[in-house]
């Protein structure tokens, strides 16, 4: 017998006794079926998010401020690009990294700097030396101020975490109300073949491991900039 069979056997043996349902510790168990639960209503319990774009963008902005994410909204890709150029000058970027996408690449190219592309195999040591990783995303989540990325939408696993600054280029249509909508989007977009990596990025890298005092840039990016148009 394999360990797998042994473990599954012990589980089945253990489950012949039924356990009380949560919140009803002293009453006999009701029996529910596999997949019989309903988290579809999670939106009703989680922090409230308005339905209008304006209110969602306000929520995203409020979260960003608290998280120390630099969030900016523009009325065109052109304005966004000029902001990116301004940041590049201010931080004296020398080496940048990005991936081939309709939003990220043109913006990165406008900086006139050498670009390391991570959408095909690349040199990790070179990526580590880059000043910034410029990526796209799957969605922005108003409720939590999160940026949803996958290995497919954001140039792999490392681009959005290894360089000290992560810049996200997003469209306003990508703003979603809450986490349940984000998971619904993932399912709709990828259910037949999920990317091997999915991440909700919420603020720059942070730690409170020393006296519970917040420090940014523990291992990942010290800065997270979300540019949306």
């Amino acid at each position: 017998m394999t360990e797998r069979e042994k473990i599954l056997g012990r589980i089945r043996e253990a489950l012949t006794l039924s356990a009380p349902m949560p919140g009803k510790h002293h009453s006999p168990a009701a029996h529910s079926s596999v997949n019989g639960h309903a988290v579809a209503s999670a939106s009703d319990w989680l922090p409230l998010v308005g339905e209008a774009f304006e209110s969602q963008i306000t929520t995203f902005r409020t979260c960003s401020t608290e998280l120390k994410t630099d969030f900016q909204l523009f009325d065109s890709h052109e304005h966004l690009t000029s902001k990116l150029q301004e940041i590049s000058r201010a931080e004296s970027w020398q080496q940048i990294a990005s991936h081939g996408g309709n939003l990220a690449l043109p913006a990165a190219e406008s900086l006139g700097l050498p670009i390391l592309r991570t959408d095909s195999p690349y040199d990790v040591v070179a990526l580590e030396k880059c000043d910034v990783g410029i990526t796209e995303c799957d969605a922005l989540v108003a409720q939590t101020g999160s940026v949803l990325v996958t290995s497919r939408s954001a140039g792999g696993r490392a681009l959005s975490v290894l360089p000290p600054h992560h810049v996200v280029i997003a469209r306003r249509e990508q703003l979603l109300a809450d986490l349940p909508s984000a998971f619904a989007l993932l399912q709709k977009k990828y259910a037949s073949n999920y990317p091997s990596f999915i991440s909700f990025i919420t603020g720059p890298s942070r730690t409170g491991d020393i006296e519970r005092i917040l420090v940014l840039g523990a291992h990942g990016p010290k800065k997270l900039t979300v540019l949306c148009f």
């Binding site: 792999g156 696993r157 890298s205």
Partner: peptide, 21 residues
């Protein structure tokens, strides 16, 4: 926290067409 800084899902090693992992 409202949500932790990074919540990441991993569904396998590097898949065909992926550049790293």
């Amino acid at each position: 926290q409202t949500i932790t800084g990074y919540n990441s899902l991993y569904g396998g090693p590097r898949q065909p067409g992926e550049s790293d992992g």
